Amino acid sequence: MREVWLDDAPASIDRLRRALSDALAGGPAVLPLDANDPSAPALRDSMAPDEPVEPGTAAIIATSGSTGAPKGVLLSAAALTASARATHERLGGDGHWLLATPARYIGGLQVLVRALLAGTEPAILPPGPFRPDGFAEAAAPLLKSPGPRYTAMVPTQLVRLLDAGGAGLDAARAFDRIILGAAATPPALRERAADAGVRIVPAYGMSETASGCVYDGVPLNGVHVSLAEGRVLISGPVLAGGYRLRPDETAESFVDGAFRTSDEGRFDADGRLEVLGRVDDMINTGGVKVPAGAVERVLAACDGVREACVVGVPDPQWGEAVAAAIVAEGPRTGIAPLRAAVRDALGAAAAPKRIEFLDALPLRGPGKVDRRSVRDTLLP
């Protein structure tokens, strides 16, 4: 395998692009790593770089996952290119891309794959924390190019562009499509984007599906989504080959040509997939099972709420209690109306017994809420 250590220099992205191009053509598998992450050496060692790579692997996405146990997702050239081609087909054709998320994660890596297949050179966001003015600067040359212009980002980045306005928001408006992934897109954010003239495409997927494979509830061409006892199953040419040196976990997660996700879902009246939340985010409070994702959606729809994260915390009376971390939109709202909204929508058991306001939700990886950190914050 070929390790590519990514730092703040744009040259490291160029090294990854070259290595990725070779891998897609049958060369050594690529393992992208973050040179600025103190835990990266241990993550690298867990990938057993001296052991032969599983046949057919073009890229290994090393991730700590939601449990903290390192995993290496094995992606073939066929899976990566199938995802990229289906994405271009859905969005409106090959185009120019802005890399706005870390390339060591599948969302960023796929931006590079899409640009390689399109024969275009991606623009790259400046290193460091996300800044709307930096987004505008990075996008400026790309937006002068003919043909479709795309980028992919996490919802938090879009929120910052909408909040800041100015040149960053103007640049966002100029993209033909902006894919939003890594975390759910709240209905309120959809409305804000539409009102601001930003064309977003909420995406659902993961490393095991070579990035987003369901766009705005509709699977990409070639991808099939089904439900088994509420759990989302995904099949199609975008699937990973399994996990690095973990045959047992591979056999458990990839069954009969389908990937068993950790998410619960349902199909709406139009047949679109709606992801309700993770199976392991179910809260058992007083013998009643409460889906955290459902409570989050009710809270996020309340006036004055920008973001919400719901977790279960230990409770001597109920076993688990529903607890919520809220990021307010403007002045903080009262707690009683929030509880009432959840109670009216989902029943008394779902109403949060503990609500805390935070300035921002803690994040991990490419913009995903760090639920363990939220749970630690909300512990009584």
Score class of each variant (00 low, 15 high):
S46C: 12
S46A: 15
P70K: 13
G166K: 05
T209D: 08
R332S: 00
V225G: 06
A308I: 00
R364H: 09
N221W: 10
G347Q: 11
A188K: 06
R372L: 13
D163F: 09
W318G: 04
P219H: 04
R15T: 03
S12M: 09
G93M: 08
T101W: 00
T67K: 13
R231M: 13
I124D: 05
A79C: 05
P380C: 05
A350W: 00
P141E: 09
A9V: 10
L6P: 03
G26W: 10
T261C: 14
L31K: 14
P316I: 06
V327H: 00
G319L: 02
I335G: 07
A294L: 14
A196D: 02
A59F: 04
V374Y: 03
G265W: 01
E356D: 10
A292N: 08
M47P: 08
R18P: 02
T63N: 13
W5D: 01
V305Q: 06
I124Q: 07
K144T: 12
L74N: 02
P41D: 06
A171W: 08
G107K: 01
P126Q: 14
T156L: 14
T81Y: 00
T151E: 05
E3Y: 07
A171Y: 05
S145L: 15
V113E: 00
N36S: 13
R190P: 03
D37C: 07
A292C: 00
F130C: 09
Q110H: 04
A341D: 02
R343Q: 10
A62Q: 12
V73M: 01
G287F: 02
A138F: 11
A336Y: 13
G205D: 02
